[in-house]
Design a protein around this nucleic acid. Structure first.
Lengths: 135, 135, 135, 135
DNA sequence: GTGGTCTAGACCACG
DNA sequence: GTGGTCTAGACCACT
């Protein structure tokens, strides 16, 4: 995982997103065990509470389930849930697009920005996938 | 203006955005006087300090200037500044798009969501414009 | 007079400064009558209260005296008082220089800025003097 | 830090200036954590909001960045930015020098005042630096 | 009346 | 614990 402590995106949310990415890309599969809170915490140098919060969020979205004493395991529907939830939760994107439109940008200008953002995102996704071995 | 006190977007930022929208759409023009802190405060039922913060932000972006005892006035370049700044600040959009890509969405899926967001934003912009008379 | 309503310097202070300049340069002399509040007010398009405040300040510094019903007249020592007061009131300059020193500027850098400021000020002084005929 | 509550300079601006001084002098370095809002607030006996405003100003100038939950950190370019900004913002100094010129002071008189101001400023800078240990 | 500053005290999200 | 936001109410300088 790649955690940017300076990012505006909360650390716990970065972890949630990258866990989703690893599952979505197939690097982690249904039934696999997620790295333990303590292990991930010490590896990333991040407070265990923060990892805990991220994992709890994943559980709330039924992406993993916890077996006390054993660990956390990826559910069967995880990949599908991730994909569907992403399509539904457009509130943040709505808000960003809205800001641009309010500032007078045309659809073409916005589409061009989105394309550029998409390319950046593709590269980032590659990076995370490639690191997934050590993950 | 339309303020949603329950929104995740801070009230002062909503005010900043809508002021930009009113200027961008031409409802408020270069040299026009912005509604006073106290007046807008009492009309929206929002604390004067919050309005002050929003207006200070507009000043920092050189969208308006203040003359103590007189009021705040829209600068000559305001419209242009608003448009250019919006194009530059793509960090938030990058982050949102990135989340979607990480969750496995294709470019087409994202484009479709963006289109839908754009339509919503257009309607919202119309609303704010139309209310500007009563503003 | 040249009044910049957008300036950070309060209007009444601009008037005080320019009155001092006109006296200092000899455009207005000891015993001369200052333009009336109403006349100056309508000529500059500025609120009479603001002119009043400026003239009161000049009186407090013994630069002029008021004869109710007659007008305001420049005192004998005016020129001297203006020059001496300017030398004494270094608080504002101290504060500005202090800011620059705190930011790590050397004396040479500051002197260079002061020189540049001085040249601008000379030009402005010329402007005000030349306009003093219509004043 | 040394805060003068009676000064004409707003408290938040005094804090901004002294933070810049501490960074400029090397007492606080790139990557260092600034004292927390609450801590500085209680130590100086000043309202947290005022500290917050000062720190926000430092962020706007890209002198520090904030990580909610962690603290504020000095950016890499901070020292450079402080120095450059100080050189650019000559408006206030222009205005002060202009006042002196309008009052009939010669360049030599002004230079002498500036020298005296510079010496005062040097002493003040020393004071702030020396206190930085206890800061 | 206007904007600018400050205090006091509260709530939230983040780590 | 940290920073971010908001409310309530006050005082000041300027027009």
């Amino acid at each position: 995982m790649i955690i940017d402590k300076r990012s505006m995106v909360p650390i716990y949310e970065q972890i949630v997103n990258q866990c989703k990415a690893l599952i979505s890309s197939g690097a982690i599969k249904t039934g696999d065990r997620l790295e333990s809170v303590r292990s991930l915490s010490s590896r990333l140098g991040i407070n265990p509470n923060t990892i805990q919060k991220a994992y709890t969020e994943l559980e709330n979205q039924f992406i993993c389930t916890s077996s006390p004493g054993k660990g956390r395991y990826v559910t069967a529907d995880a990949k599908c849930i991730i994909h569907e939830n992403a399509k539904k939760n457009t509130a943040a994107l709505d808000s960003e697009i809205s800001t641009l439109v309010l500032c007078g940008l045309t659809y073409d200008e916005i589409e061009s920005i989105v394309k550029s953002s998409y390319k950046k995102a593709e590269k980032k996704t590659e990076l995370i996938k490639n690191l997934s071995g050590k993950d």
